[in-house]
Protein backbone atom coordinates (compact mmCIF):
# COMPACT_ATOMS: atom_id res chain seq x y z
CA UNK A 1 0.00 0.00 0.00
CA UNK A 2 2.79 2.36 0.93
CA UNK A 3 5.49 3.69 -1.37
CA UNK A 4 4.60 4.41 -4.91
CA UNK A 5 1.10 3.20 -5.40
CA UNK A 6 0.07 6.75 -6.05
CA UNK A 7 -3.35 5.99 -7.31
CA UNK A 8 -5.00 9.18 -8.26
CA UNK A 9 -8.70 8.90 -8.04
CA UNK A 10 -10.44 11.02 -10.58
CA UNK A 11 -14.03 12.09 -10.40
CA UNK A 12 -16.82 10.08 -11.96
CA UNK A 13 -18.90 11.42 -14.68
CA UNK A 14 -22.28 10.60 -13.45
CA UNK A 15 -25.88 10.88 -14.19
CA UNK A 16 -26.72 14.48 -14.76
CA UNK A 17 -30.42 14.00 -15.34
CA UNK A 18 -33.24 16.04 -14.00
CA UNK A 19 -34.31 13.52 -11.40
CA UNK A 20 -30.95 12.28 -10.12
CA UNK A 21 -30.33 12.72 -6.46
CA UNK A 22 -26.82 13.75 -5.52
CA UNK A 23 -25.29 11.05 -3.40
CA UNK A 24 -21.82 9.68 -2.85
CA UNK A 25 -20.92 7.31 -5.66
CA UNK A 26 -20.86 3.71 -4.32
CA UNK A 27 -17.68 2.63 -6.14
CA UNK A 28 -14.11 3.53 -5.22
CA UNK A 29 -11.60 2.98 -8.04
CA UNK A 30 -7.83 2.68 -7.76
CA UNK A 31 -5.06 1.79 -10.20
CA UNK A 32 -2.55 -0.59 -8.63
CA UNK A 33 0.51 -2.56 -9.75
CA UNK A 34 2.06 -5.72 -8.34
CA UNK A 35 5.43 -3.98 -8.46
CA UNK A 36 6.66 -0.77 -6.87
CA UNK A 37 9.80 -0.59 -9.02
CA UNK A 38 10.26 -1.94 -12.54
CA UNK A 39 13.35 -3.67 -13.90
CA UNK A 40 14.18 -3.45 -17.66
CA UNK A 41 12.45 -6.20 -19.64
CA UNK A 42 10.30 -7.25 -16.69
CA UNK A 43 6.68 -8.40 -16.97
CA UNK A 44 4.34 -7.21 -14.22
CA UNK A 45 0.62 -6.66 -13.67
CA UNK A 46 -1.47 -3.58 -13.28
CA UNK A 47 -5.06 -3.65 -12.15
CA UNK A 48 -8.06 -1.43 -11.62
CA UNK A 49 -9.46 -2.25 -8.21
CA UNK A 50 -13.14 -1.39 -7.89
CA UNK A 51 -14.50 -1.49 -4.36
CA UNK A 52 -18.27 -1.31 -4.02
CA UNK A 53 -20.30 -0.14 -1.06
CA UNK A 54 -22.44 -2.80 0.66
CA UNK A 55 -25.08 -4.38 -1.54
CA UNK A 56 -23.92 -2.76 -4.81
CA UNK A 57 -22.59 -4.69 -7.79
CA UNK A 58 -20.85 -4.04 -11.11
CA UNK A 59 -21.07 -6.30 -14.15
CA UNK A 60 -19.02 -8.95 -15.93
CA UNK A 61 -18.34 -9.05 -19.66
CA UNK A 62 -21.84 -10.44 -20.17
CA UNK A 63 -23.95 -8.50 -17.66
CA UNK A 64 -26.81 -11.03 -17.82
CA UNK A 65 -30.42 -9.85 -18.22
CA UNK A 66 -29.55 -6.22 -17.47
CA UNK A 67 -26.65 -3.88 -16.87
CA UNK A 68 -23.51 -3.01 -18.79
CA UNK A 69 -20.07 -4.62 -18.94
CA UNK A 70 -17.34 -3.00 -16.86
CA UNK A 71 -14.56 -1.85 -19.17
CA UNK A 72 -10.99 -0.61 -18.79
CA UNK A 73 -8.83 1.14 -21.40
CA UNK A 74 -5.13 0.90 -20.52
CA UNK A 75 -2.35 3.29 -21.44
CA UNK A 76 1.37 2.62 -21.02
CA UNK A 77 4.41 4.58 -22.27
CA UNK A 78 5.88 3.92 -25.68
CA UNK A 79 8.02 0.78 -25.76
CA UNK A 80 5.89 -0.95 -23.12
CA UNK A 81 3.50 -3.74 -24.08
CA UNK A 82 0.11 -4.02 -22.43
CA UNK A 83 -2.33 -6.93 -22.78
CA UNK A 84 -5.68 -6.89 -21.00
CA UNK A 85 -6.33 -10.16 -19.19
CA UNK A 86 -9.67 -11.89 -19.15
CA UNK A 87 -12.14 -11.00 -16.45
CA UNK A 88 -12.11 -13.12 -13.32
CA UNK A 89 -15.04 -15.49 -12.80
CA UNK A 90 -18.18 -13.56 -11.92
CA UNK A 91 -20.89 -14.40 -9.43
CA UNK A 92 -24.55 -14.65 -10.31
CA UNK A 93 -27.11 -12.41 -8.64
CA UNK A 94 -30.75 -13.35 -8.79
CA UNK A 95 -32.66 -10.12 -8.59
CA UNK A 96 -36.34 -9.52 -7.86
CA UNK A 97 -38.66 -10.80 -10.59
CA UNK A 98 -36.15 -13.46 -11.68
CA UNK A 99 -33.83 -11.00 -13.41
CA UNK A 100 -30.40 -12.62 -13.43
CA UNK A 101 -27.17 -10.62 -13.37
CA UNK A 102 -23.51 -11.64 -13.68
CA UNK A 103 -20.82 -9.59 -12.05
CA UNK A 104 -19.00 -8.70 -8.90
CA UNK A 105 -20.07 -7.69 -5.43
CA UNK A 106 -17.82 -6.00 -2.87
CA UNK A 107 -14.78 -5.69 -5.13
CA UNK A 108 -13.10 -6.78 -8.33
CA UNK A 109 -9.59 -6.36 -9.73
CA UNK A 110 -9.46 -6.13 -13.55
CA UNK A 111 -5.92 -6.90 -14.62
CA UNK A 112 -3.57 -6.23 -17.54
CA UNK A 113 -0.13 -7.68 -18.12
CA UNK A 114 2.63 -5.17 -18.87
CA UNK A 115 6.10 -5.84 -20.25
CA UNK A 116 8.76 -3.17 -19.87
CA UNK A 117 11.23 -2.60 -22.71
CA UNK A 118 14.62 -4.26 -22.30
CA UNK A 119 16.38 -0.94 -22.81
CA UNK A 120 14.44 0.82 -20.04
CA UNK A 121 16.77 3.23 -18.24
CA UNK A 122 16.86 3.01 -14.45
CA UNK A 123 15.77 6.31 -12.99
CA UNK A 124 13.00 6.79 -15.54
CA UNK A 125 9.51 7.53 -14.15
CA UNK A 126 6.92 5.29 -15.78
CA UNK A 127 3.47 6.86 -16.22
CA UNK A 128 0.62 4.39 -16.51
CA UNK A 129 -3.03 5.28 -16.81
CA UNK A 130 -6.36 3.52 -17.10
CA UNK A 131 -9.87 4.70 -17.82
CA UNK A 132 -12.46 2.48 -16.21
CA UNK A 133 -16.17 2.68 -16.73
CA UNK A 134 -18.93 0.70 -15.12
CA UNK A 135 -22.56 0.58 -14.19
CA UNK A 136 -23.17 -0.02 -10.51
CA UNK A 137 -26.58 -1.17 -9.28
CA UNK A 138 -28.45 -1.86 -6.08
CA UNK A 139 -31.97 -0.43 -5.77
CA UNK A 140 -31.00 1.83 -8.64
CA UNK A 141 -28.18 1.94 -11.17
CA UNK A 142 -25.51 4.60 -11.60
CA UNK A 143 -22.94 4.84 -14.36
CA UNK A 144 -19.40 5.55 -13.21
CA UNK A 145 -16.16 6.44 -14.89
CA UNK A 146 -12.70 7.11 -13.50
CA UNK A 147 -9.46 8.21 -15.08
CA UNK A 148 -6.72 6.71 -12.96
CA UNK A 149 -2.97 7.04 -13.08
CA UNK A 150 0.07 5.54 -11.46
CA UNK A 151 3.76 6.41 -11.53
CA UNK A 152 6.39 3.72 -11.06
CA UNK A 153 10.17 4.14 -11.06
CA UNK A 154 12.46 2.10 -13.28
CA UNK A 155 15.19 0.55 -11.15
CA UNK A 156 17.94 -2.04 -11.60
CA UNK A 157 16.08 -4.53 -9.38
CA UNK A 158 12.32 -5.02 -9.21
CA UNK A 159 10.28 -4.58 -6.04
CA UNK A 160 7.00 -6.40 -5.54
CA UNK A 161 3.83 -4.96 -4.09
CA UNK A 162 0.19 -5.99 -3.60
CA UNK A 163 1.22 -9.61 -4.17
CA UNK A 164 -1.70 -11.28 -2.38
CA UNK A 165 -4.33 -9.07 -3.96
CA UNK A 166 -3.10 -9.77 -7.50
CA UNK A 167 -2.49 -13.47 -6.83
CA UNK A 168 -6.03 -13.86 -5.47
CA UNK A 169 -7.63 -12.42 -8.60
CA UNK A 170 -5.18 -13.93 -11.11
CA UNK A 171 -6.23 -17.36 -9.83
CA UNK A 172 -9.80 -16.59 -10.86
CA UNK A 173 -8.99 -15.70 -14.46
CA UNK A 174 -10.17 -18.57 -16.67
CA UNK A 175 -7.72 -21.23 -17.84
CA UNK A 176 -8.38 -23.30 -20.96
CA UNK A 177 -10.74 -26.15 -20.02
CA UNK A 178 -8.35 -28.85 -21.23
CA UNK A 179 -5.93 -27.93 -18.42
CA UNK A 180 -8.41 -28.99 -15.76
CA UNK A 181 -10.84 -31.43 -17.38
CA UNK A 182 -11.50 -33.72 -20.32
CA UNK A 183 -14.28 -32.19 -22.35
CA UNK A 184 -16.96 -33.81 -24.51
CA UNK A 185 -19.60 -31.78 -26.29
CA UNK A 186 -22.52 -32.87 -28.43
CA UNK A 187 -26.11 -32.03 -29.32
CA UNK A 188 -29.06 -34.10 -28.20
CA UNK A 189 -32.82 -33.62 -28.58
CA UNK A 190 -32.89 -31.07 -25.75
CA UNK A 191 -29.94 -28.94 -26.89
CA UNK A 192 -26.22 -28.72 -26.25
CA UNK A 193 -24.66 -31.11 -23.75
CA UNK A 194 -21.12 -30.58 -22.47
CA UNK A 195 -19.52 -33.12 -20.17
CA UNK A 196 -16.49 -32.18 -18.10
CA UNK A 197 -14.47 -34.96 -16.50
CA UNK A 198 -12.44 -33.04 -13.97
CA UNK A 199 -8.84 -33.93 -13.21
CA UNK A 200 -9.36 -33.10 -9.53
CA UNK A 201 -12.22 -32.63 -7.06
CA UNK A 202 -14.49 -29.60 -7.62
CA UNK A 203 -17.30 -27.92 -5.73
CA UNK A 204 -19.83 -25.15 -6.37
CA UNK A 205 -19.72 -25.40 -10.16
CA UNK A 206 -21.41 -22.47 -11.91
CA UNK A 207 -21.66 -21.76 -15.63
CA UNK A 208 -21.73 -18.42 -17.48
CA UNK A 209 -22.00 -17.74 -21.21
CA UNK A 210 -21.26 -14.83 -23.51
CA UNK A 211 -23.66 -15.25 -26.46
CA UNK A 212 -23.50 -11.67 -27.78
CA UNK A 213 -26.43 -9.73 -29.21
CA UNK A 214 -27.60 -12.03 -31.97
CA UNK A 215 -28.23 -15.14 -29.87
CA UNK A 216 -29.72 -16.03 -26.50
CA UNK A 217 -28.85 -18.94 -24.27
CA UNK A 218 -31.74 -20.51 -22.37
CA UNK A 219 -32.25 -23.28 -19.84
CA UNK A 220 -28.60 -23.16 -18.73
CA UNK A 221 -27.97 -25.89 -16.16
CA UNK A 222 -24.94 -27.52 -14.60
CA UNK A 223 -25.12 -30.72 -12.57
CA UNK A 224 -22.06 -32.11 -10.86
CA UNK A 225 -21.74 -35.63 -9.50
CA UNK A 226 -18.32 -36.54 -8.19
CA UNK A 227 -15.81 -35.45 -10.78
CA UNK A 228 -18.28 -35.17 -13.67
CA UNK A 229 -20.15 -32.01 -14.52
CA UNK A 230 -22.88 -31.99 -17.14
CA UNK A 231 -23.74 -28.63 -18.64
CA UNK A 232 -26.87 -28.21 -20.72
CA UNK A 233 -28.34 -25.29 -22.57
CA UNK A 234 -30.42 -24.36 -25.54
CA UNK A 235 -29.81 -21.44 -27.87
CA UNK A 236 -32.04 -19.30 -29.99
CA UNK A 237 -31.13 -16.89 -32.74
CA UNK A 238 -32.65 -13.44 -32.35
CA UNK A 239 -31.11 -11.79 -35.36
CA UNK A 240 -32.02 -14.00 -38.30
CA UNK A 241 -29.31 -12.42 -40.45
CA UNK A 242 -26.55 -13.45 -38.02
CA UNK A 243 -24.07 -16.08 -39.13
CA UNK A 244 -22.43 -18.70 -36.93
CA UNK A 245 -20.26 -17.35 -34.11
CA UNK A 246 -18.18 -18.70 -31.28
CA UNK A 247 -19.31 -18.29 -27.72
CA UNK A 248 -17.23 -18.39 -24.56
CA UNK A 249 -18.61 -20.70 -21.89
CA UNK A 250 -17.02 -20.04 -18.52
CA UNK A 251 -17.17 -22.61 -15.75
CA UNK A 252 -16.32 -21.42 -12.24
CA UNK A 253 -15.61 -23.85 -9.42
CA UNK A 254 -13.87 -24.29 -6.08
CA UNK A 255 -10.77 -26.46 -6.32
CA UNK A 256 -9.55 -29.01 -3.74
CA UNK A 257 -8.07 -26.24 -1.58
CA UNK A 258 -11.36 -24.31 -1.67
CA UNK A 259 -10.05 -21.59 -3.98
CA UNK A 260 -12.35 -20.14 -6.59
CA UNK A 261 -11.10 -20.88 -10.11
CA UNK A 262 -12.49 -20.98 -13.62
CA UNK A 263 -12.02 -22.55 -17.02
CA UNK A 264 -13.36 -21.60 -20.41
CA UNK A 265 -14.59 -23.42 -23.48
CA UNK A 266 -15.25 -22.04 -26.91
CA UNK A 267 -18.58 -23.32 -28.25
CA UNK A 268 -20.21 -22.84 -31.65
CA UNK A 269 -23.47 -20.92 -32.01
CA UNK A 270 -25.77 -20.95 -35.00
CA UNK A 271 -24.18 -23.89 -36.80
CA UNK A 272 -26.31 -26.10 -38.95
Amino acid sequence: MRLLSIAILAGWICCSAALAEEKKHPVKAELLADASAIKPGETFHIGVNLVMDDGWHVYWLNPGDSGLPTTVAWKVPEGFKVVAMEYPAPVQFDQAGGVVGYGYRDSVLLIAKVTAPADLKPGTKIQISATASWLVCKDLCLPGKAKLSLELPAEAASKHDHGDLFAGWLEQIPAMASEQADVKASNDATGRVITLMWHGPVKNVQVFTVPGDAYVVNDLKADTTGRVSTIRYTTRKLDQSAGPVEMTVLVAYDDASGKRRSIKLIEPLGQK
Binding site: S66, L68, A96, V99, C137, L140, L238, D239
Partner: peptide, 14 residues
Protein backbone atom coordinates in the same frame (compact mmCIF):
# COMPACT_ATOMS: atom_id res chain seq x y z
CA UNK B 1 -39.32 -8.60 -34.45
CA UNK B 2 -37.01 -9.52 -31.59
CA UNK B 3 -33.83 -7.90 -30.29
CA UNK B 4 -31.87 -8.16 -27.08
CA UNK B 5 -33.07 -5.48 -24.68
CA UNK B 6 -30.54 -3.54 -22.66
CA UNK B 7 -30.86 -1.37 -19.60
CA UNK B 8 -31.29 -1.49 -15.86
CA UNK B 9 -33.06 -4.44 -14.31
CA UNK B 10 -36.70 -3.72 -13.57
CA UNK B 11 -36.69 -3.03 -9.83
CA UNK B 12 -39.52 -5.41 -8.95
CA UNK B 13 -40.98 -5.63 -5.47
CA UNK B 14 -40.28 -9.36 -5.27
Amino acid sequence: PETKPYGCSVKYAD
